[in-house]
């Protein structure tokens, strides 16, 4: 379905309105500040990224998994499903959809256990990854339902490649912009803007970083809503600003314990 973004479920159902998104998150935002909320998502995006890398998935699959994760919580509170379970479930589903292949259940669980133990002990301490295959499989049905079966996600990577080609192949520019697109997964832009706009936003930031003034005419000729691009640029720059003063290793335990959590069935 790479052919037609405009008729896709991504465009028709999953480009969300900023105000609505904030309203849907109201429950969580009564407990976490916007910045804390973003830090929590930043953390789980890292888990998805590391899981994906350990499983040798392509960035496209990792990006799709991250968007599934964000879409689920765009419509649901963090308390509905433990994000530590939803994160690997998103990876599992995305790898099937993106045709990386089915990750074997045992390999997925083992990878979750090692990743949590070796890379995220600063968040979970001595606690082990608590879920098993049956949890992932059950969670997968809930995820699919909440995604309304919209599984094809358009990513900014392909438009980015096309834009860089159009500019005249510039490997350094592509590398920078590619990384910025990766970083953009930690913001809400993938819920709010079409992927080609995110690609343009990433290119703009890359140009600023590399001091490339000569591309101004190229941007000026684009037939896009520059206000939207500026919103994207601002969202990503805000993320970079946040990172400057943020020590995840110190803060994340506090944030995870503050985060709204699932409640078990009432005791009889």
């Amino acid at each position: 379905m790479a052919g037609n973004f405009w008729q896709s479920s991504h465009h028709q159902q999953w480009i969300l309105d900023k105000q609505e998104l904030r309203r849907d998150r109201q429950f969580d935002l009564n407990i976490l500040s916007e910045e804390e909320y973003q830090k929590v998502f930043n953390f789980f995006a890292s888990i998805i990224q590391v899981l994906g890398e350990q499983l040798k998935l392509r960035q496209q699959v990792i990006a799709t998994a991250t968007v599934y994760f964000k879409r689920f919580y765009a419509r649901n509170s963090l308390k509905c499903i433990d994000p530590l379970l939803l994160a690997p479930t998103c990876v599992f589903l995305a790898s099937k959809v993106e045709e990386f292949g089915v990750i074997s259940n045992s390999r997925l669980i083992t990878t979750c256990q090692t990743v949590i133990k070796n890379k995220f002990s600063y968040a979970y301490g001595q606690q082990e990854f608590p879920y098993r295959t049956n949890h992932i499989l059950e969670c997968e049905f809930y995820l699919l339902e909440n995604l309304d079966c919209c599984l094809i996600v358009y990513q900014p990577y392909r438009p980015l490649l096309l834009f860089v080609q159009d500019i005249g192949q510039d490997d350094q520019l592509l590398t920078y912009a590619w990384r910025i697109v990766n970083d953009s997964l930690r913001t809400d832009v993938s819920l709010l803007y079409p992927p080609y706009q995110i690609a343009i936003g990433a290119l703009q930031i890359a140009c600023v970083m590399l001091g490339k003034d000569n591309l101004k005419p190229w941007f000026a000729e684009l037939n896009v809503d520059m206000d939207k691009i500026q919103e994207i640029v601002r969202a990503i720059i805000n993320l970079y600003e946040m990172w400057k003063s943020y020590d995840e290793k110190k803060e994340i335990q506090g944030l995870l314990s503050k985060m709204p959590k699932p409640k078990p069935a009432p005791q009889r």
């Binding site: 649901n76 509905c80 433990d82 379970l85 098993r132 049956n134 059950e138 969670c139 699932p262 078990p264």
Partner: peptide, 24 residues
């Protein structure tokens, strides 16, 4: 699979009961 959401090792609750009932 059933209703056993509670995991023994970490006492993590996988899914919110109200959410589960509501979607059901």
């Amino acid at each position: 699979m059933g209703d056993n959401f509670q995991n023994k090792t970490m006492a993590a609750v996988m899914m919110d009961y109200d959410f589960k009932i509501k979607t059901q």
